[in-house]
Amino acid sequence: MKLKKISMELHIPTLAPETLFHIGKLPITNTIINTWLAIAIFFILGLVLRKRIHLKPSKIQNFAEFFLEKLLGYFDRVTGDRKKTMQFLPIVGSVFFFILLSNWLGLLPGTGSIKIGHNMLLRPANTDLNLTLAMALVAVISSHVFGLITVGVFTHLNKFIQIGAFLKSLTKGPVAIFTAVIELAVGVIEIVSEMAKVLSLSLRLFGNIFAGEVLISVLSSLVAVIVPAPFMLFELLVGLIQAAVFTILTLVYLTVMTAQPHGHEEKAH
């Protein structure tokens, strides 16, 4: 009973974000506010940067170029090709910076402590499963769209439903047909793994950031000063690592989908 009393006093964030008010019928939650805060910061930064682009870079341009170059270096190591990196940069790079900033915005003072009624005004954007699920869907679906465009519709679909290999095997005797049937089954498993990609991408980001939020709010209601500080430092690191993991995984998916399938020519012989 005593334990229950303590857990009632601790303010643990609920799994779903709280609705603050409605615009028309659209509920505005506290995570939406944080999301738009991050978007607004990037919008202003973009406008400022666009005005000040010179051949001899100013301070802020230098700052942006430094991060972009670091990012390109890491991306190159995954894709192995600068051309591909430049192709994927608009999606993957903006996802990285968005996740990073919205994770770090959640650590600013005021998050969770400024309240409207019973609900907190600000809540880290990635503690909303809707947002992470949306980003994961964008990542996986765009990898398929890129795949369809670069390797062709038939080749891409053949990675999942291997009809082409099956039809070819019909002329080559029972062993080849047997192999082709197994490959068809593997293709079905591949389809399931595409859904697992969405699930694991979204849950990983959500779980990490939400767990951090719970950890910090529990600790700061136990001891208000000093004790939560090292954990917040740890959350800074987690925010960076999760942003990096999400982007690198997205990039891996994009790279794999746009690569020509291995052994495709071998099978044709």
Partner: peptide
């Protein structure tokens, strides 16, 4: 990068437990 990826996959299981 490969180490980070592997760690992310291993960590995902703990996150599932958490969820």
């Amino acid at each position: 990068v490969p180490m980070l990826l592997g760690a992310a996959f291993a960590e995902a299981i703990a996150i599932y437990a958490l969820v």
